[in-house]
């Protein structure tokens, strides 16, 4: 399958804080890939670099085979990479419908845009009900749906989401994730899902990476990750027989 996004040996620093250390990652056509990590692991930094909002200190990122160095988020949207940022970031004083129209800024065909607005209302019926209200008055869950729908309005080949589950009720998270999987199946859009909520993210993804303190420490199919003892312990909150003093990847690191 075609590789759409490819990060190689990416390093990022905020002053003295090293946020990413030699991160490599691949996203292929039609895949759903999860990036799991605790708070401060470097997930947001990674996504910012992948969409060219931030330049890496080292390493390279390719989108559709081309290096994105010197590009910018708005140009990458034109090439088919959409980003749902952490914290939703909807346009508060635009209506729901206007937010969606703004999401289609890179497109021109009015009829097709209107059809896609309707398609989004189909995915997220509560947005249809609230289409003429300002985004600021929506609930957190509705704002998240709006942010996702807004990103889809650009008809991306790659959709990147930064912790869409943050602050939402578990049942709603489940619905939204199921919908992401459905949209992926129906339209073939590849999804890179960055999450702390490992259980839900692994339940809809094909593969996953585990990011810890800026380093990718595990990289496997979602099934195997969900069965992995270390992941179960640290991210799914499941303790198996016998308390493991140390996580495997940590031990490995130390010996290197």
């Amino acid at each position: 399958m075609t590789v759409l996004v490819e990060a190689h040996n990416v390093e990022a620093r905020y002053g003295p804080v090293q946020a990413l250390r030699g991160v490599g990652l691949v996203l292929r056509e039609a895949e759903v890939v999860a990036v799991l990590g605790a708070n401060g692991a470097g997930k947001t930094t990674l996504l910012r670099i992948l969409c060219a909002a931030l330049d890496p200190d080292q390493g390279s990122v390719k989108f559709l085979g081309r290096d994105i160095a010197g590009s910018s988020p708005d140009r990458l949207v034109r090439q088919g990479l959409a980003h749902v940022p952490e914290g939703r970031e909807v346009f508060p004083l635009l209506t729901v419908r206007e937010n969606l129209i703004a999401g289609a800024f890179v497109r021109r065909e009015r009829a097709a845009i209107a059809a896609d607005v309707d398609r989004m209302y189909g995915y997220f019926p509560s947005l249809r009900e609230r289409r003429d209200q300002h985004a600021a008055v929506l609930s957190g869950g509705e704002q998240q749906m709006l942010a996702i729908a807004r990103a889809l309005m650009s008809r991306p080949r790659v959709l990147m989401l930064d912790e869409p589950s943050l602050g939402l009720a578990p049942a709603l998270v489940k619905d939204i994730f199921a919908l992401l999987r459905r949209i992926n199946r129906e339209s073939g859009v590849s999804i890179l899902l960055v999450e702390q909520n490992a259980r839900q993210a692994l339940s809809i993804s094909d593969r996953g990476y585990v990011l810890e303190l800026g380093r990718i420490v595990l990289d496997d199919s979602s099934e195997r990750l969900a069965a992995n003892d270390d992941v179960r312990e640290s991210y799914l909150g499941i303790r198996d027989k016998g308390v493991r003093g140390e996580r495997r990847w940590r031990r490995k690191k130390r010996w290197r």
Binding site: A53, A82, E89, F91
Partner: peptide, 24 residues
Amino acid sequence: TRIGIAIQAASQNQLAAYYVGIPV
């Protein structure tokens, strides 16, 4: 208009405007 809505979007949240492809 498309541009008019984009201007409003950019003035409400610049970062998000970049993320939806608006050349701020």
